[in-house]
Design a binder for these strands. Structure first.
Lengths: 193, 193
DNA sequence: CCTACCGATCGGTAGG
DNA sequence: CCTACCGATCGGTAGG
């Protein structure tokens, strides 16, 4: 059995896994090395510092959400259609990159101020995309006239960001059903239908 | 200026603050000592171990939510009334004990299996209270007949648990307005009204 | 609550 | 990617 050498992206991926599971401060470079079958000190052939690894994982998370929102909006359509694509895109990002997303959501506070500010800006831009779509939906009558786009966006994103905490892909609810349920909650109400 | 000695509960309170801000692994006993104006080693006059401090903070969080749910249900009333009291109680717990709550929500994974299992059981019981009230509301017609109590509870709790991440008490939205908005999202829909 | 420690582990480096 | 380290910091203890 041939064990190939690790690439830099292997190291980043493993770091995302451990940071997600145990947190940044709960993961030592020796833990990370063990995960890859090498010594902690050997990691410095691939990476400059531990912080550097966190920066890469978190910025990958920011990129995934940004790209998802861009895709969802680029195809146009009604506000309802765009909202559904935003929700479906978010769910896909969370379920297909849970390590990166969990690190992005929970460990960004450990970053130095410069990088943390960048993450906050990315989150704000992402939320703004949701807000704009909801505002469009209020104008075209998809959503109720009294809807506050900011509050609605916060609530929708609260539901989306919590998905990772409870959803199991092998359960009774499949991915499309999950998206349907969240879109229904957003448009028809949590306890409606 | 007289500086009094610290009590055990002072130590636990300070631990909650630092665990919430920097995480359990991001907080050293020397950090905690500095916060209280004493040396890290002096903390062991008040407490048996660092883990012990985490256990106390997290179990206080569990207790706060349990008591809140018990109070909300004890006074009876319609499903809608009980749901509103559950929401208002949750918001009060979060806003009046944000350090404890943040530690409860984010640092429980660090606990040993026995204590972590206890926390998970407490969370399950708390969610069950929401589920039961929503189920009652479906039966008495307060909520739509198609409402899934489990899914609705998860969504409501997702919104409630996220409050701590964005709500600032000194902003335009006061506490009663926040509760109203969340109850409205739960009953009339996120993007309705 | 302090002094004076302890062994273990941490992130990281030099040199191969 | 390993060997062989480094200084700093960690949780915690003995004795007062």
């Amino acid at each position: 059995m041939l064990t190939t050498r690790n690439s830099r992206s292997d190291v980043v991926a493993a770091a995302g896994r451990l940071f997600a599971e145990r947190g940044y401060h709960g993961t030592s470079m020796r833990d990370l090395g063990r995960e890859l079958g090498l010594l902690g000190s050997s990691l410095y052939a691939h990476v400059e510092s531990k912080q550097d690894l966190l920066v890469e994982v978190v910025e990958e998370g920011a990129r995934l959400f940004q790209d998802s929102a861009e895709d969802a909006l680029a195809r146009g359509g009604t506000a309802a259609e765009r909202l559904r694509r935003l929700v479906a895109g978010h769910v896909a990002v969370v379920l297909d990159n849970s390590d990166v997303v969990r690190t992005f959501l929970n460990e960004a506070r450990v970053l130095d101020e410069v990088h943390r500010a960048r993450v906050i800006a990315a989150r704000d831009a992402y939320e703004a995309a949701f807000r704009a779509v909801v505002a469009d939906g209020v104008e075209d009558g998809t959503f109720g006239a009294g809807t506050d786009p900011k509050m609605a966006s916060i609530f929708i994103l609260s539901i989306l960001n919590a998905v990772e905490r409870w959803y199991h892909p092998d359960g009774a609810l499949d991915r499309a059903g999950l998206v349907d349920a969240i879109v229904a909650a957003a448009t028809r109400g949590i306890a409606r239908t």
